[in-house]
Nucleic acid binder design. Structure first.
Lengths: 176, 176
DNA sequence: ACTGGTCATTACCTTAGGTTAAGCGCTATG
DNA sequence: CATAGCGCTTAACCTAAGGTAATGACCAGT
């Protein structure tokens, strides 16, 4: 079985409007979500109410809270629609069940997790080694279309600075 | 087959002295390493020569460059011994081969990758949401023994500040 | 006992980024 | 229309962190 076949078999189509949440930090959510169309943001909310954006989710991406689906804890982050979005919800237990029965699917799962880990590793690298300015210019090169789709507020919280800070960075980059 | 059985079957024991590299950033290394005893640091070296520590590797941990073993690129980071270390080297192709043949092992691999991803996610959270001071106090709570084992220079590069910066943070935490 | 090396601390200065507040343009809604 | 709200920019002020350099402690090797 391939991933697509699994999605056909066990997936539930979910339609969400702009600003609607898929799940919230602290929820007990046991599903992964495959994004067909639209745009999502995954973000942490800190005790003092500050928001930090973990990642933007583009069509074709799959997302879910590993700590919730696998470690049986609560969701460590929230997931919200930035655009009207069409998602396919797949209960994680179903995935594990099918993987246990179907070696081919298990291979796809391994492949998926390897890709996922490499993505995490890349983000970790950028946060550890690059300045906010470098992260911005890198994003400018790698996914310029994202800059059109998200507000500067969200972009700033993704890069790890305040919106005011990002405005300054943009100026500095332009003048350079 | 379990992971331990795979290690018995395909593993090569490697002994390294303090300061010896396991592999270097830019290398083409195709193995994972299981640490039996000792201590390693995984670190990035930037163009300007600055060093950033990705993670410390403790006995029982497994490490390797995903981009090198899986994506057929070069190692994105270096791996070096901070203490005399005993490692078991396992070629990644062997792991993939056995996983393809052995569904039980594939399940263990999925489990391993899920754990690995959660670890990455935790680090990502700390780098994105916490200040250097908060990361330090958290480390103080969660793995105080690490502070005894690594130099303050390495600790600083792990937390994302300079050694001088960490010295200041320690002072501030003490006085608080 | 020297000596060179690494590690930690301190002091002085520079700078990136946070905070707050004001202003401007766009858009949605009454 | 009118206005309230949001997104973005800019400015002023301030704080925290980094750069650099000097100092001292502590080894390890000759």
């Amino acid at each position: 079985m391939t991933f697509n076949e699994l999605i056909q078999l066990e997936g539930l189509v979910v339609e969400k409007a702009k600003t609607e949440p898929v799940f919230r930090q602290g929820d007990n959510n046991q599903s992964l979500y495959f994004l067909q169309s639209g745009l999502l943001k995954a973000y942490y909310t800190c005790v003092d109410g500050k928001e930090f954006i973990k990642s933007f989710v583009m069509p074709g991406d799959t997302i879910g809270s590993l700590t919730s689906v696998h470690a049986k804890e609560r969701c460590s982050f929230s997931l919200m629609c930035l655009e009207p979005s069409s998602l396919i919800e797949i209960p994680f237990v179903k995935i594990r069940e099918h993987c246990a029965k179907d070696p081919e699917l298990a291979q796809h799962m391994i492949e998926f997790l390897l890709q996922f880990s490499m993505k995490k590793e890349k983000r970790e690298f950028q946060l550890l080694c690059l300045s906010a300015k470098d992260r911005y210019t890198l994003l400018l090169e790698e996914s310029p279309q994202l800059l059109q789709q998200v507000t500067q507020n969200d972009l700033a919280r993704y890069l790890g600075v305040t919106p005011v800070g990002l405005s300054r960075i943009k100026n500095r980059v332009l003048k350079a």
